[in-house]
Design a protein around this nucleic acid. Sequence first.
DNA 1: TAAAAACCACCCGTTTAGGGTGATTTTTTG
DNA 2: CAAAAAATCACCCTAAACGGGTGGTTTTTA
Lengths: 208, 208
Amino acid sequence: MTNQLRIVIIEDDEVLRKGYEMLLSNKEDFLIVSTYGSFDLARKQLKADAPQVILLDINMPGTNGLQAIPEIKKSLPNAYVIILTVFDSPETVFEALNMGADGYLTKNSNTEKITEAIKDVCNGGGVMSMNVARIVMQSFQKNLNSPLTKRETEILQRIATGQTKIQIANDLFIDQNTVRSHVKNIYIKLDVNSKADAIKTAKQNRFI
Amino acid sequence: MTNQLRIVIIEDDEVLRKGYEMLLSNKEDFLIVSTYGSFDLARKQLKADAPQVILLDINMPGTNGLQAIPEIKKSLPNAYVIILTVFDSPETVFEALNMGADGYLTKNSNTEKITEAIKDVCNGGGVMSMNVARIVMQSFQKNLNSPLTKRETEILQRIATGQTKIQIANDLFIDQNTVRSHVKNIYIKLDVNSKADAIKTAKQNRFI
DNA sequence: TAAAAACCACCCGTTTAGGGTGATTTTTTG
DNA sequence: CAAAAAATCACCCTAAACGGGTGGTTTTTA
């Protein structure tokens, strides 16, 4: 790309903010348009800054980074938002992704990783650091010690998508009564007595 | 770590197989224990090879890589499985993660990335290349043009977890009739007339 | 060849879903 | 500020689905 990438940094820690600014502005591909100590300070300027990439901290005074994402996406729909934070709890990560973050880096990332991430994001990639990727991958991995059989798991998954027993029976080419039998066994194994509880328990334990 | 990492490569393309072997065996931290042209050939030897990391292709004659993952995890519960493939469709990625893969690299990854990935995985990290991360992140990102209001989205999400309207009403401190009203509006907006269809449509369009 | 899983068939009463039609109050937004 | 959108609530109705109980057979797996 012939033009420099316009970057904005929003980070309340002054040392980190200046640090990132110095390190990234050394790269000739990057132009640090502005830096802010909070999103509340950045809000009115952002549109004029017209950044392509925003490095965003989560823990900030006033509006926090997660709350800021939808607002940013609204006023700058084409800008990429990369979270840069110390938090890497599953809840925080998933909320950030749900809000529409394009990347999630934890602060142990060195300059090399960050510059790489910025370029990757602009090439349409997603970016996450190792510990974040681990969290995300674990969220997909099922519990290998599920008490449910293959068939029971299949049926519970379908229940979780809102299918009725009749629909499930038709889809699996088995009788409604068979589905009922399986459901009863599922309830016994999970020690519940309703769809909602079964789904809840199964999801908590990653059985489905 | 003082000992070398024991690595097995399972890849049907001979050129790639030999290529990876050469490149990785140059690293003094790594010991390529064995390489195989298919999982069926590897199956009986794997336990004796006792690898810490397995690089696994997906498209192979006989048992494919995805099917192989559960089998590997069963016989070598402590081994890390890194998928190394050209496929990066959402379906393939999610199936691999569901099967328990610890990493997912596409074949444009250079040696540097691969060695880094192997080390990261052994440090308990998850590993994925940029295009895979993009796929995973997109799966979390909701459609910003949802026709559903905040409340409607909330209610539909709860329906998708199996909650009844009464339970939802209690949880949200509103009347059952109010929940019904919202549900009716949801059905109209999504042009459906049942829970299952609403959930299906909403998930397809990432409204929930 | 046992045990586990998958399959099927009835009974029963209660709960839930979904369609229709009306309304009021609060919040958002131009 | 005024109009629009969202959220709230009420009552009609029927058919469908749920969940508990108890019994069984066939197939698959270890």
